[in-house]
Computed example of a mutant assay.
Amino acid sequence: MPRVVDHRQRRDELVDAVWQLIIEHGLPGATIRAVAERSGWSSGAVRHYLPTREAILDAAAQRVGAVIEQRVRAVDPSAPPLEVLAGILIAVLPTDESSRRASEVWLAFVGQAVSDRAIADAQGILYRDLNQLLVEVLTQVTTLGYEVDGGPDAAAAELQALVDGLTVHVLLGRVEPVRAEDVLRAAVRRLVVSAT
């Protein structure tokens, strides 16, 4: 009887190896050969799931997006609007092992994107998804009797820049996650105020 292979699990194992290589060596360290060595698989087996370096990097970036999306989806949408907004931002911060690893991989993409247009485009997807969500939430709060300083687009850009910067500082150990959360809550209270 042929052995049943769980292809999703095997691909996930490879992406785990990719993430570890990126965390240790940056994006240049994530090659098919290095993934094969790290995972203990043959290069041919790796190529079956991740046929090119671009596919390796795409899989790593998609996993970053999935981790953040899962954390954002865990925010209680029935909470008061400002808590929802702050919760979304806090969900992006590296506050546990999974989100810390995701943030380390994200930061490697950001660093490489400065000089690599293709990486910048892939990184842009991660930026656009969060930005779009923030604009939507900020637009929605204006329909609930709140004023957004500078409008939803400007406030979303400011909040996203703040959470990106805080993420870097948390990763570097310069800011404690709890302090970063407080800073984000304060920024939300400053930018979004009751119109009444």
Rank of each mutant, 00 (worst) to 15 (best):
M1R: 07
V5A: 04
D6V: 15
D6Q: 07
R10E: 12
R11F: 01
V15S: 07
V18W: 00
Q20W: 04
I23M: 11
H25K: 14
G26S: 00
G26Y: 00
G26F: 00
L27E: 11
P28K: 05
T31R: 03
T31C: 07
R33I: 00
V35H: 02
R38M: 07
S39I: 08
G40W: 05
G40N: 04
H48I: 10
E54F: 14
A55N: 05
I56M: 12
L57E: 09
L57R: 07
A60T: 04
A61R: 05
Q62V: 11
R63S: 11
V64M: 09
G65I: 08
A66C: 10
V67L: 05
Q70E: 14
A74S: 07
V75A: 01
V75S: 06
P77N: 07
P77L: 05
E83G: 00
E83T: 10
L85V: 09
I88M: 08
I88G: 09
I90Y: 03
A91N: 11
V92T: 08
V92A: 13
P94F: 11
T95P: 00
T95Y: 01
E97N: 08
E97R: 06
S98E: 13
S99R: 12
S99E: 03
R100S: 08
R101Q: 12
A102D: 00
E104N: 03
A108R: 11
F109D: 13
F109G: 06
V110S: 13
Q112V: 02
Q112A: 11
Q112E: 12
Q112T: 07
D121A: 15
D121T: 12
Q123G: 00
I125F: 03
Y127R: 11
R128M: 08
L133C: 07
T139Y: 01
T142F: 00
T142G: 02
L144H: 14
Y146V: 01
E147N: 15
V148W: 05
G150S: 13
G150Y: 10
G150M: 06
G151N: 03
A154Y: 09
A156W: 13
A157D: 10
E158C: 08
L159F: 06
L159P: 01
L162S: 15
L162K: 12
V163K: 02
L166N: 13
L166P: 15
T167Q: 05
H169E: 15
L171R: 05
L172M: 14
E176C: 00
P177M: 03
P177T: 09
V178S: 05
R179P: 00
R179D: 09
R179F: 14
V183Q: 06
V183W: 02
L184S: 12
R185W: 14
R190A: 08
R190Q: 02
L191F: 01
L191H: 00
V192W: 07
A195R: 15
A195G: 12
